[in-house]
């Protein structure tokens, strides 16, 4: 990535996460003239040391977004925020589905209205679903079957499909890139897979051992930055080239991890979910069945040596985090 001096103003939706912080730093590194406006509905970390970065904590409402787009003349938008999913009550699911879809629709409309040059949307590989009959590599054109087994994730699936149809409908007006990354791991992240792998009481499934892929947070940030630069309009799976069995991945971080059968854990989790402390049920499927992504389309554009970390190195960085967590 070469250094640029172009005057650009980027809106990052979801600045509160670890990935957004790394992306900001990378963006500034390649273009010191860049202006970044970051928003989040979660508490925002104001310690990111980047000049020209303004962060706001806002409610994701149409009015708030409209004000933001009117006040700033954004050239590009990076949409990292997803409404998280749970399965607590059907009423909540309905409300969340509505919020998620309507919120996305608002952002898409505003991007179009304010002549945004480029929009990058971070979706997830969870839309494909971890299923016992997944082919070995899932390509971008594979059906999105996650919500077949778990209706509570249909907001994420519908949001992805909405963005996809929108991307092609307005392909002449705005350059949209949709990314479906595999498990993103790294010491700055607090997502489900990172928490699972670094938990002091980590375990691996005794009765299943699916193959799993990872991408390091730094590499993912590089993907986001590159997508804001010159990746052609389209939908891309993002994953490193390697894959390994889940047991091996867990053992690399914690050699003393213990095996547990998933079947009873699933049942316990279903009960815990009703008390707000469980893991979303659909995530348990990723401990049972594989969902390996074919990354050929993206690597064809960026080249085979684009990623900095291989799987072993990515897991090593997590191992260090786990070590620190234990020593505290």
């Amino acid at each position: 990535m070469s250094v640029s001096t172009k005057k650009e103003k980027i809106l990052i939706i979801g600045i509160g996460g670890g990935l957004a912080r790394i992306t900001c730093k990378l963006l500034y590194k390649i273009n010191p003239n860049i202006e970044i406006v970051g928003i989040d509905s979660r508490p925002v970390d104001h310690t990111i040391e980047i000049p020209n970065l303004k962060t706001y904590r806002i409610q994701y409402r149409r009015g708030e977004f409209e004000n933001l787009f009117r006040t700033h003349q954004f050239t590009k938008v990076l949409f990292l925020s997803r409404v998280t999913h749970s399965s607590i009550s059907s009423n909540l699911i309905k409300k969340r589905l509505n919020l998620s879809l309507m919120g996305t629709q608002t952002i898409l409309e505003l991007c179009l209205k304010h002549n945004i040059e480029r929009l990058v949307i971070l979706s997830t590989f969870h839309v494909y679903g971890a299923l016992n009959d997944n082919p070995v590599f899932v390509y971008e054109d594979a059906p999105l079957r996650a919500s077949l087994a778990h209706p509570e994730i249909r907001d994420v699936v519908e949001m992805d499909q909405k963005c996809q149809s929108w991307m092609y409908e307005f392909k002449d007006q705005i350059n949209t890139v949709i990314l479906r990354p595999t498990n993103i791991i790294g010491p700055s992240l607090q997502n489900g897979i990172t928490t699972y792998l670094t938990h002091p009481l980590s375990f691996y499934p005794l009765d299943f051992n699916p193959m799993i892929q990872f991408i390091h947070e730094y590499d993912m940030a590089k993907v986001l930055v590159r997508s804001l630069e010159d990746i052609p309009l389209g939908l891309y799976n993002i994953s490193a080239n390697e894959y390994l069995p889940l047991k091996e991945a867990v053992k690399k971080i914690n050699p003393h991890a213990y095996p547990l059968p998933i079947f009873p854990l699933e049942k316990i989790n279903q009960v815990l979910n009703k008390t707000f402390i469980g893991v979303p049920n659909y995530l348990m499927d990723y401990l049972k069945f594989p969902c390996l992504l074919a990354n050929r389309k993206f690597l064809k554009i960026v080249g085979p040596d684009f990623f900095h970390f291989n799987t072993r190195e990515s897991l090593e960085t997590l191992g260090i985090r786990r070590f620190h967590a234990l020593s505290l």
Binding site: N132, D133, F208, N209, I262
Partner: peptide
């Protein structure tokens, strides 16, 4: 559970044309 894992680790794959 267990059987699927054993089959996979012993080289059996899902009978899918893509595979």
């Amino acid at each position: 559970p267990f059987l699927g894992k054993l089959a996979t680790e012993s080289g059996t794959i899902l009978g899918d044309r893509k595979n």
